[in-house]
């Protein structure tokens, strides 16, 4: 077992004919992901790389190919619409890679998810690297070769910082169960807590790495949840100790507002919940190894 994606995932790529969409659709397929369809409005009836059928609408793609997950590369102005299109077409997992979606658009997406669905689909992102179950399924833009199957689940708000942590694990011979990048936008789908809960339930996951950053309060909420419900060891890292107040640090959601959302507050909340906090980004894997040796 694994979390959300595996060998049986049938992937749709929305925006498959764009530059990034095409590049990453190929890279996911090369990794072994079962890419069954693409959507680009106006290009229905064509084939991507002579083999993957392209459709005008997600509904049509779903009916004909039975796709159950989607990876979205649609440009920011239309990406919120693409998310809702995928949700109403019945896809169970929506991974939105697109960066720069207006935050009022994402607010409406979440509003529609809450109003229109008894069981809304799982949304990962936007502005995220995606999700990968090593050697089974990669949905996203992460470099596949740095991963290796194993017992550690990873969840993160940052892309490259996740690769850093994964690489530290792999270089030490420790594999990963599933790695989830939840994205750096202030309003997004899956939260740190949602991801912890999924990894906690997954029998293949034995330990968890959670990577957070300044802004918002998801790490604090995840810490409270973990203290009560999580029975697996967790190592956390928070980026942005040196970030100035009131500035958006690249990610739209990475901002300290007044005294809220600082790295120090988050680290404090994590430690109070019994979570080991890595002192620097270079020590994430080592902190986990030390923690596991103690247990």
């Amino acid at each position: 077992m694994s979390v959300l994606v595996d060998k049986n995932t049938r992937l749709l790529v929305q925006g498959i004919t764009g530059k990034a969409g095409a590049f990453h659709a190929r890279s996911c397929e090369e990794y072994g992901t079962n890419v069954v369809a693409g959507v680009t409005p106006g290009r229905g009836g064509e084939y991507f790389d002579h083999k993957i059928p392209i459709f005008d609408t997600v509904l049509e793609a779903r009916k004909i190919t039975g796709c159950n997950a989607t990876m979205i590369f649609v440009p920011a102005p239309s990406a919120a619409d693409a998310i809702v299109e995928a949700a109403t077409a019945g896809l169970e997992l929506i991974v939105c890679i697109t960066e720069g979606i207006p935050v009022h658009d994402m607010m409406r997406v979440k509003g529609i998810f809450a109003e229109s669905f008894q069981n809304p689909p799982i949304l990962i992102g936007p502005n995220c690297p995606g999700i990968i179950t090593p050697n089974q399924c990669k949905i996203g833009i992460m470099p596949g070769y740095i991963h290796k199957p194993g017992p550690v689940g990873v969840v993160s708000r940052s892309g490259t910082l996740t690769y850093e942590a994964v690489w530290q694990l792999t270089a030490r011979g420790i594999g990963q169960s599933t790695c989830i990048g939840i994205g750096g936008d202030p309003i997004h789908g899956m939260t740190q807590m949602d991801a912890l809960s999924l990894l906690n339930k997954d029998p293949k996951t034995e330990a968890i790495i959670m990577i957070g950053e300044i802004g918002g309060s998801e790490e604090e909420e995840a810490a409270l949840w973990a203290k009560q419900y999580c029975d697996k060891p967790i190592v956390a890292f928070i980026a942005g100790v040196t970030a100035p107040e009131g500035r958006r640090m690249g990610h739209a959601g990475a901002i300290i507002q007044g005294s809220q959302g600082t790295a120090a507050l988050k680290q404090e909340a994590l430690r109070a919940a019994g979570i080991a906090v890595a002192p620097s980004s270079a020590d994430i894997a080592e902190t986990l190894i030390t923690l596991l040796e103690k247990q």
Binding site: L161, E213, V241, M249, G250, H251
Partner: peptide, 15 residues
């Protein structure tokens, strides 16, 4: 490259 890694790089310089 990447906002999270950029922040973490600033932090590790300080560290």
């Amino acid at each position: 490259n990447g906002a999270g890694l950029a922040m973490a790089t600033m932090d590790i310089i300080k560290h």
